[in-house]
Design a protein around this nucleic acid. Structure first.
Lengths: 270, 270
DNA sequence: CTTGACCTTGTCGCGACGTCAACGTTTCTA
DNA sequence: TAGAAACGTTGACGTCGCGACAAGGTCAAG
């Protein structure tokens, strides 16, 4: 047999056969006078075994080890290990398919794939409300509003879906209705004015109070108690660094205002 | 944020972030005076979206397309396609795991993994019988015996398990018992003598008859009718080329003897 | 003699980064 | 104040199982 016949017999490519030679998986056979490799049934048997092992999912190195040791002991271990690996892969694929199915279902129920733009329908609704409010107000939209959208999107993409959507839901409840959202926008403008201020600017306290006043008591009562630690700066170094990034993205005076607002909310929660 | 903080926030490596920059997935942010990249929450949002898409299994090129088009239409198509792909992978893994489980089960029932050495327990038994016969006979084992083992192993590794094991079972039945196997070994020696003979050597006919006489009528009756075509040379060019390799591995006179033996069996089958 | 199907060796490419290398910057510590 | 540890920068190579191509040599048939 020449290499093409051998390869066809085993159902692999000639390139693969040469590759196996190169890796030492399959011994190089004798050559004809013209340099062609000359194979016998022995080689077909060996190649078939290689192919069966690779089809089981073994890497070529593993196949070589198994063929070399030829003990049978090691093969069993490798196969068991391989099966565990396959089980993990299968589980991972299952998870991904479930998430895909969830995404596609959600996309059909209310158009809008969560993987892009606003994540959840709650957040999409909030974005819509903000857009309407901005359109109804004179002048350009406050820069703070855009930043707020970013923060919310980040929270939803990074936190567990449950927690993220709960938070968005709370905020949507806090700014429910055009009037409430209009007040929020006024606070955005106040925050915008702090962009170049010092952290000890007297306006910081007033903005913090205005921000706190935007949140109704019902919402404050349901907020995550861990949030109150943020005001004291405890979480800045710990956890996932999210809050650090959050505050670092603000101007100093803005960060101070937000921090103090959270402190006010903490007091109200008690 | 510097790149390490961003990466930690999103749960990826800094290398991955730079990779995304390189591919144009994530825009290069402004640099500090020292050349460090400076990131904001915007980038964290973008990176989180990239990560979610890649975790769904999209390739980076696909992610870039999706982010660029931002239509949502295309994303749905990609996701559906991806789900089909995952389904295929899942099925393939399932098949592999089933085969693995079958292998391991068989290995426990009677030690000996089919992926190495003799394939089935029938063949292992046959090998054992051959070894005993060879030990009981004077002189070295005929070369033909080793070749026979190779052929049988090849058949079992390449054919469907069912057909291969049936064939081995038949042969085991044909050479059942020490006396029968001893007669087979005598035929092996006759075949060995033909290694340098011409195809028209008068011994060819006698060897063919001896070979045919080794197979009892009960076995002939159960053999695959397609085998009879082999004697006429019909299958040499068709099918999978296995028979071509089979005969090519013999010396010309040996091949002729086997072919004529099959012809004799075909007559007996009628 | 050409054509086309085979064979030879050798090298690059893929996908999503990991992992040096060789160097500069910042920050903590003795 | 020096040095070390821990960051950052760009660039290039390694991974895995071959596929694809280059640039030829060999062989049977028309």
């Amino acid at each position: 047999m020449r290499i093409g016949e051998l390869a066809a017999l085993a159902g692999v490519s000639t390139r693969a056969v040469r590759h196996y030679h190169h890796l030492g998986l399959l011994p190089e056979p004798a050559r004809r006078a013209n340099g062609y490799r000359e194979y016998g049934l022995r080689d077909a048997v060996a190649l078939a075994r290689i192919r069966r092992l690779t089809e089981l999912g073994l890497g070529l190195e593993e196949v070589r080890d198994v063929l070399a040791d030829d003990a049978g002991r090691e093969l069993r271990e490798v196969l068991v290990e391989l099966d565990e690996d396959l089980a993990r892969q299968e589980a991972a694929i299952g998870v991904r398919r479930e998430r895909l199915a969830a995404l596609l279902r959600q996309a059909e129920e209310h158009g809008g794939l969560p993987a892009e733009g606003p994540v959840s329908r709650e957040l999409a609704a909030l974005y819509g409300e903000m857009a309407r409010t901005a359109a109804a107000r004179p002048g350009p939209e406050p820069a703070m509003a855009a930043k707020e959208r970013e923060v919310l999107a980040l929270i939803e993409t990074m936190a567990e879906p449950e927690a993220g959507q709960r938070m968005t839901g709370l905020l949507g409840q806090a700014a429910e209705g055009p009037a409430a959202m209009a007040r929020v926008y006024e606070v955005y403008e106040l925050l915008d004015e702090l962009v170049a201020a010092e952290p000890d600017d007297p306006r910081v306290a007033r903005v913090a109070r205005a921000l706190s006043d935007c949140i109704p008591d019902a919402v404050v009562a349901e907020m995550d108690p861990r949030a109150w630690q943020v005001a004291s700066g405890e979480t800045e170094e710990g956890a996932d660094g999210f809050m650090a990034a959050f505050f670092a993205d603000f101007a100093p005076a803005q960060a101070a205002a937000v921090r103090r607002a959270i402190g006010l909310l903490a007091e109200r929660a008690r």
